[in-house]
Simulated scan of single mutants.
Amino acid sequence: MKKRRFWVVSMATLGLLATSGGAATASPDYELAYWTMNEPPGSRTMRDVTGHGFDGRIGRDVAVGLRSGDRIAYGFERLEPDTPPTRPGHVVIVPDDDRLDPGDRDYAIGMRLRTRDHFGNIVQKGQATVPGGSFKLQIPNGRVQCWFRGSRTSLLVTAPKPINDGQWHTVRCERTRDGVTLIVDQRVVASRAGWTGTIANSWPISIGGKTNCDQVDVGCDYFAGDIDYIAVDVDDPGW
């Protein structure tokens, strides 16, 4: 069984970010959704173990039940970028639910992953121009990026170093009233100050690529690698 995640950002680091104009607030700590990705081979339902019911549909091309030491993960094969045909079976989809939208809350997405490639959307809700805003984590050039687009502005943060070394890494991105902060392997690596505003759209959460794409005019940005878990934390569940 996977252990719950504990994210520690030192007060010294938070102080440095605060004085340098970065984002510095308490982390969202209510577990809204937690997908352990522990299902056995052949499974087609990704279970949310929080009991909140945010189960997902696993695409037929996603490898389930991959073992790596004491970990069990999902595997996403490498697909050539912007090359037809589309592969909707490459994606895991969690149906839209208003409770999964960031709204005005402090909101964080965390995960453990490994890859040797240098492109792809890891997880997202909505796409670049959809009404209501959107968010996503992606890995261009092997460097994790986190993007929140809200009613007031968009904030993008980028890790300074690539992590496409084939090793397991933890990644967490937090959106608060003060800004967006990116944490890799429990170290703050990038932040931007500002308030994105409300984010609430009618799109599902997609893992492993886009849901609305044609690989011609709109690339599907399929992720290549393995994902061990994904979790969503908020400061206030809203119910």
Rank of each mutant, 00 (worst) to 15 (best):
D233A: 06
E39S: 11
M37V: 01
A24H: 12
W7G: 01
R47N: 06
R4E: 11
V184T: 09
E31L: 14
S43T: 12
G15C: 07
A231L: 04
F54V: 00
D226L: 03
S43P: 08
Y34F: 13
G219D: 13
S27Y: 12
R47Y: 10
V62D: 09
P95S: 05
V123R: 01
P162N: 09
E39I: 02
I199D: 08
T211W: 13
D106E: 15
G75S: 01
D185Y: 06
M1E: 11
V144N: 03
D165W: 02
G142R: 04
Y229H: 08
R57M: 02
P81T: 14
C146F: 11
R152F: 10
N201V: 05
F54M: 00
G142Y: 01
C220L: 05
A26H: 14
D70F: 14
R47I: 13
F6R: 15
S206V: 07
A73N: 07
Q167L: 11
T50H: 03
V216G: 01
A190M: 08
R177D: 15
R47G: 00
V157I: 02
F223T: 03
A63T: 13
C146A: 15
P237L: 13
F6Q: 14
L17A: 08
G166S: 10
R71E: 15
I109W: 02
P140V: 10
E39Y: 04
H169C: 12
S154Q: 12
T153F: 14
R172L: 05
F6N: 13
G21Q: 03
W203A: 13
G56Q: 02
E31I: 09
C146Q: 04
E31N: 12
A200Q: 06
G59C: 06
G103Q: 15
G219E: 06
Q186F: 11
A24G: 08
L137I: 12
T83Q: 11
N141H: 05
D98W: 12
Y229N: 01
R5Y: 06
R114F: 00
T129P: 00
V216K: 13
R175G: 12
D117T: 10
P102C: 02
Q127F: 07
D165H: 09
S27C: 02
V184F: 05
P88Q: 06
I139D: 07
V64D: 06
E174M: 05
H118C: 09
Y107V: 05
